[in-house]
Amino acid sequence: MSAVGDAVHVLPVVTALKRHDPAIRITWILQGGPASLVRGHPDVDEIILFDRKGGWRAFADLRGKLGGRRFDVVLDLQVYFKASIVTALASAPVKLGFDRARARDWNWLVTNRKIPRRAPRHVQDQYFEFLDVLGVPSEPVEWRLGPYPHELDAQRAFFAGLRRPAVCLVIGSTHVEKEWLPERWAAVSDALWERYGLQPVIVGGRSAREVETEREILARAKHPIISTLGVPFRELVGILAGAALTLSLDTGPMHISVALGTPTIALMGYINPKRTGPYRRFHDLLIDAYGDPGEDYPISIQKRPGRTRRIAVEQVMEKVDLWDRAYRR
Score class of each variant (00 low, 15 high):
Arg69Thr: 11
Phe50Glu: 09
Glu194Val: 07
Leu260Ala: 04
Gly54Arg: 09
Ala3Val: 04
Ala160Trp: 02
Leu109Arg: 09
Glu210Cys: 07
Ala157Phe: 06
Arg304Asp: 01
Gly64Pro: 09
Arg104Cys: 10
His122Gly: 14
Gly277Val: 10
Leu30Glu: 07
Ile115Asn: 00
Val188Trp: 12
Leu249Gly: 07
Ala243Phe: 12
Pro12Asp: 06
Ile217Met: 06
Pro147Arg: 08
Leu240Trp: 12
Ala160Asp: 15
Asp250Thr: 12
Thr213Ala: 06
Gly97Trp: 04
Leu229Gln: 08
Arg25Met: 14
Trp143Pro: 15
Leu218Gln: 01
Val231Ile: 08
Val176Leu: 13
His175Gly: 09
Trp180Gln: 00
Met317Asn: 04
Gly242Pro: 08
Arg280Gln: 14
Pro34Met: 05
Asp321Leu: 03
Thr276Cys: 15
Phe159Trp: 01
Gly204Lys: 03
Ala221Thr: 05
Thr27Gly: 08
Gly32Cys: 06
Gly238Glu: 04
Arg144Lys: 10
Gln78Thr: 08
Ser84Glu: 02
Ile29Thr: 05
Asn107Gly: 15
Asp153Cys: 06
Val231Arg: 14
Ile24Thr: 12
Gln31Ile: 03
His223Phe: 13
Arg234His: 03
Arg121Cys: 12
Arg156Ala: 09
Leu169Ser: 04
Ser248Phe: 13
Arg304Gly: 03
Leu322His: 01
Val14Asn: 10
Val320Trp: 12
Ile301Asp: 14
Ser173Asp: 00
Gly306His: 07
Ser189Thr: 06
Phe128Val: 09
Arg328Val: 02
Phe158Ile: 15
Ala58Met: 11
Asp45Thr: 10
Ser91Asn: 13
Ile217Gln: 01
Ile256Asn: 06
Arg280Pro: 07
Glu216Gln: 14
Asp72Pro: 14
Glu179Tyr: 09
Gln78Leu: 15
Gly97Leu: 00
Ile115Lys: 04
Glu183Phe: 12
Ala326Glu: 09
His9Cys: 07
His283Pro: 05
Val4Asp: 06
Ile287Cys: 11
Lys82Phe: 11
Arg144Ser: 04
Met268Ile: 14
Ala60Asp: 15
Ala154Arg: 13
Gly33Arg: 13
Glu177Gln: 11
Tyr148Glu: 14
Pro278Asp: 10
Ile226Leu: 05
Ser84Cys: 02
Leu11Ser: 11
Pro12Trp: 07
Leu11Val: 11
Leu322Thr: 01
Ile225Ala: 05
Arg121Asn: 10
Arg117Met: 03
Thr174Ser: 15
Ala243Tyr: 05
Tyr279Gln: 00
Arg100Leu: 13
Asp153Arg: 15
Leu49Ala: 02
Gln31His: 04
